[in-house]
Structures are given as C-alpha cells and as structure tokens.
Design a protein around this nucleic acid. Structure first.
Lengths: 112, 112
DNA sequence: TGATGATTTCACATTCATATAAATTACCGT
DNA sequence: ACGGTAATTTATATGAATGTGAAATCATCA
C-alpha cells in the first residue's frame, strides 16, 4: 500500500496524526537522540555505554533517553547497577532505514 | 539492502551523516511543514493555496516554505503573480510513507 | 546500615524556533 | 507609470529545547 501515491483519504489520516507524527519526528531530529537510536538498533546498551559512544555528558544522555522514553521509542531494563536501554519496537528502525537510504547510499534513480 | 539489520558499517555512515539527517528531520518535525509536504505530494500548490489548506498566515507559510527550500525539499516555480511549490524529489514521499505507515495504519505484526 | 556506583531530576543559562506585523519586492492589468 | 495582488524578508517578541553542574534516587554490595 501507499507505494505509488498518497491518496486523499491517506492525506486526511495524515492530517489527523500530523501532530503526533511531528512529535515523533522532533524526537528523532536531534543528532544525539538519532545516534542513540542507531546504536540501539545493534542491541541494548547501558547509559554509560551510550555516554561513551556519543561522547556526551551522562545527564545529557539521560535527558535524551527521557525524551525517547516519553515518545515510547526506547525502554529501560535494570540489571544490577546498570540500566540497559533497548528499542521498544521496530518503528525507529523503519525510519532509520529510510534515513540511511537517503543519506548513506548513492542512488541511481528514483524508483518510488 | 538494510531490511533485516543495520550493520556496523552502515552505522558509521550514519554517524557521518547524523547532522545532515537530523537537519532534514528537523525540517519535517513541524506540523505545518509536514502538512505542506503532504499536500505537495498530490501536486504543486501556490502559497495562497497552502495558506488556505493549512489555515495559517501567509508570512508563516512562506517561512515554512523557506525552511523546506533551504533543505532542498521543495522548489518554487513562478507563474504570473503566483508561485507554485512542488517537491524537489521523492525523498519527502519516502519518509512520509513510513510516517503514514506508523501513524495511520493499524498493524497486525511487525514484519521488519 | 553505610558506602558506592549508575542514573535521573532539578534549576539555571543559553541558544534555537516560531509567529506576527510591517516593510519590501515582483508581477500584472489598466 | 500606478495600483493591486502574491510572496518574501526583516525585526521583534515569545516560547521551546538543550546542556551543565548540583542534588537527589535507587539498587547493590560489603
């Protein structure tokens, strides 16, 4: 579905969800948060690990995770002292794949 | 490609483009701009038309278009007094399709 | 229990984004 | 050239987002 064109009906649904959608996009449109999601695609990570991977302060990473949690994109799991974060579902991956496709591959021609 | 998993190599490319990617996502993560793109999927529109479709002030729409122009997502075409905007390529559509998929359809199970 | 480690929360300062209104530019008809 | 319509730009004011350092939480281990 929806591969060729977006119909008027689809459009209406889109308008209805525009606010939700833009909120999710806002959550993604932050370099740090985007990278967190990228890293989580390869498996769960502790806050400290993410802190190192992103070269950012712990409080900052924690707040970024809080935003992603709020959006329901990631979920925490405690194990001993550490808290492991992982992706809640495959939504982030779906978007990341498009983003990857747009920014990280050289395209020959538009197929859509 | 990239349907099952995002490899480490892909990850590195992603990091390299993280800033560009988040800039594009920022452009999309605004209810008005998101809707503009939706409307443009169905064909080019004048600023005035968009103004009405979004129920927003002309200056606001114009600025939103400016942001999208800056990101290379839309392009203007002058015809007489009116300026017609259209999508530069199919990137917006690709993303919108995922967004639509995530927000406007009821999913049975995750297939990715 | 008390200390330690990991994470979160808070308060603040700063930067960024957005809408509004006014001024400006471009095009057309007369 | 003048007046009007369409769109952009500018300046401004306001609100949101972000990082920082300090304080608070919360679970673990001795």
């Amino acid at each position: 579905m929806l591969d060729g064109d977006i119909s008027d009906e689809d459009m209406e649904k889109m308008m209805t969800s525009a606010c939700d959608a833009s909120n999710m996009l806002k959550a993604l449109s932050h370099e740090g948060r985007l990278m967190i999601l990228c890293h989580l695609v390869t498996g769960e990570k502790t806050v400290t690990e993410l802190e190192e991977l992103l070269s950012a302060r712990q409080a900052a990473v924690s707040q970024q995770l809080a935003r992603l949690r709020l959006e329901g994109l990631v979920k925490p799991r405690r194990d001993g002292k550490a808290i492991y974060y992982s992706l809640t579902d495959d939504r982030p991956k779906q978007i990341l794949e498009v983003i990857y496709d747009l920014f990280c591959t050289v395209k020959a021609s538009g197929k859509t």
